[in-house]
Design a protein around this nucleic acid. Structure first.
Lengths: 197, 197
DNA sequence: GTCTATAGTGGGATAGAC
DNA sequence: GTCTATCCCACTATAGAC
């Protein structure tokens, strides 16, 4: 699956560099604690020079978060129309999250932690997309329960447990020396779906 | 189990109020995006007046995070010396996290998201405590695998899955109209330990 | 495309009156 | 214990030279 956002090609190569450096800093300290001077310093230029490439600090955040939100939405839509049982779709979703964790952990951190600092319009659009995503995930879980493939537990608790693990996987993946992606997928699917006993 | 921190009694009642209001704001926007003027406004006083009760904005964060870190450490130590199988200890840990989620969600948000903005000394102490906590949790999981009580999966993956779910439970608990704590404990233990299939 | 200079705002924190 | 007034600094962003 190709996960690197295509819409980032709308931006000049210098802009892409800035967004990359900024996202790294956002992940470490959070959007609000990072200054445009920090970003400029990481680029080796002065803060004023950034503004030849970006419109504002908030714009960087919006590009990061909204691009990734669209990636999640597109991935969900592909999986929804694919063949397979609900359980197989959940496995595909887990694998998609892991691919994103490995390839776009900085954007994922911004999406998790800093979405509320985007401009108001983007916040509204983002929350809508997230709710739609979760609703689709919930439906898949419910279908699995109806078909007997999944134990009859609260779908909400199952959904939350899987999503919270996948959402924060990027924190853990960087600490443990970047283990093999396929091993990670196999183990994660096993633990999340089959449990530990 | 008594979870409300006793060490908070070191502070005057006005200081406790300030910490409570501040933690609420920190949870919404993050520590860095909240100003002392925001905190003062929530208290109905001017920013300068805060400084009769606190030494700095950072002090508020440190009290929140370090008190809760000690609560986690104390809880772990109690469970470590208690009787019971490794699996029963894991259940107790899950229940402790849920109690903290319900009673101290604001401090939990600060501990999760803003610990890196504490003064350097506290950051060092905090990271040490967190590593010790995780190491103890890991040992319990390994004991459970050795005794055959737990499936022979990567202990790291099991640990991460449980901890990430519990760490971010506060986000979910506030969205879903605060369901009964005992129901939540039962369902969470079931999903986390037994899985979904 | 980057720079210096600077505008304009708002940040954390202090002094001293009441 | 709270206030007004203020300090000093850092912030985002712009203007205009090179």
């Amino acid at each position: 699956m190709l996960l690197l956002s295509c819409s980032i090609m709308k931006h000049s190569s210098r802009k892409v560099e800035i967004i990359a450096k900024a996202s790294h800093l956002f992940k470490e300290k959070g959007y609000s604690a990072v200054t445009v001077r920090d970003i400029a310093q990481a680029m080796g230029i002065k803060a004023a020079s950034l503004y030849n490439h970006i419109q504002s600090k908030q714009e960087i955040l919006s590009v990061l978060v909204m691009d990734l939100a669209r990636t999640f939405t597109d991935g969900m839509n592909s999986i929804l129309v694919s063949k397979g049982t609900p359980l197989q779709k959940i496995e595909s979703l887990i694998e998609m999250h892991i691919d994103i964790t490995v390839n776009q952990s900085e954007a994922l951190a911004a999406l998790n932690n800093d979405w509320m600092h985007m401009p108001e319009d983007d916040v509204v659009a983002f929350v809508r997309m997230r709710e739609a995503y979760e609703e689709n995930f919930r439906k898949i879980i419910k279908q699995g329960i109806e078909s007997g493939e999944i134990k009859p537990r609260h779908p909400e608790v199952i959904l939350f447990s899987i999503l919270s693990t996948l959402r924060t996987l990027y924190l853990w993946y960087q600490k443990r020396g970047k283990l093999d992606v396929n091993v990670l997928k196999r183990d994660m699917v096993a633990v999340l779906i089959e449990g530990m006993v």
